[in-house]
Every structure is written in C-alpha cells, then in structure tokens.
C-alpha cells in the first residue's frame, strides 16, 4: 500500500464524511511560477549589493576585536614587566658576585682597619643627624645647667 492509499484509508476511518482528494481552490497569477526563480535571484542580487560581504565585519565582531586587543596589550605589558624585573635581579646578583670576588684580594687586617676607621659613620643614625638645633634647645631648656655639664662630661668626645 502506498502513502496515498494509506492516507485515504486513514481518513475513511476517522472522518468518513470528509472526502479525500478535494483540491485547493485558490488561483495563481498567470506565469507566476515561470518567473519565480528569476524574481528570487533578483532579490538576492539586490540584497548582496545592499550588504556586500566584508572580510572582517567590525560591527558584528566588535567584542571580539576589543578582547583580542586587550589580550595583546596584556601580553606585551606582562612581558615587559617580567623582562625588566629579571634584568634588575641579574644586575643585583652580578654586583654581589663582584664584591665577593674583589673582597678576597684584601687581607683580614686591612679590612678590619677599614671597618674601624669608618665605624663612627656607621654608628651615627640619620635620625639623630637630622634633629633640628631649635628642637634641641626646646628640649633642654628646663634642664638645670649643672646637670647638662655633668652629662656632657660623661659622653665621648669623638662623635662628629
């Protein structure tokens, strides 16, 4: 049994009052089907002139463009940062290496002599050196002169 017969039998069973094979009564303008494919192609050509295909549609892919640009910038900045940091580390390491190498050329005696002769510089803290004279005068104004003389006699005289 083909599909047509199967449909007719089905219809007889479910709706015997409805005949099969009733045609569609609508009319179509003369030559409509003869010209349809040409009309459709004309429409397609008109649309392709209106919206020519571009190699890269910026508007359509704007988010993609921004994301790609941001990624490239990110990669460039990260590379630059890591390259600079590495160079600084290498330079510090080179300095330490040079000092260690050079220091072996000096005897222990000459080194201790150097340290002793430069000791006062190391003991002088920048905070003390930077104290203002006016501030000192303000701090010591209530201290009796005798107490100050006693204090000055007690401290060593080789401080700058």
């Amino acid at each position: 049994m083909n599909e047509k017969e199967s449909i007719q039998n089905e219809l007889k069973e479910i709706a015997p009052g409805l005949k099969s094979g009733i045609t569609t009564p609508y009319q179509v303008p003369t030559n409509y089907f003869e010209n349809l494919s040409a009309n459709v192609l004309q429409q397609i050509h008109r649309q392709s002139v209106k919206n020519p295909a571009s190699l890269f549609n910026l508007k359509k892919n704007s988010w993609l463009t921004v994301a790609a640009a941001a990624s490239v910038c990110g990669i460039l900045f990260a590379s630059l940062y890591f390259f600079t940091a590495r160079q600084q580390n290498e330079s510090a390491a080179d300095t330490t290496k040079w000092v260690k190498k050079e220091i072996t050329n000096f005897s222990e005696e000459s080194l201790s002599e150097f340290v002793q002769s430069h000791a006062p510089i190391q003991t002088t803290t920048p905070s003390v050196a930077a104290v203002d004279n006016k501030e000192i005068a303000q701090l010591v104004k209530d201290i009796p002169t005798e107490e100050l003389s006693t204090f000055l006699n007690e401290i060593p005289t080789n401080t700058p």
């Binding site: 005949k19 009733i22 045609t23 569609t24 009564p25 609508y26 009319q27």
Partner: peptide
C-alpha cells in the same frame, strides 16, 4: 477571495 464560492466544497 475574488473566486470565492460558498456553495463549493473546496471553498
């Protein structure tokens, strides 16, 4: 429709 006929089964 211009060709409508209320008596005809197809319509």
């Amino acid at each position: 429709d211009d060709h409508f006929d209320a008596q005809k089964l197809e319509w």
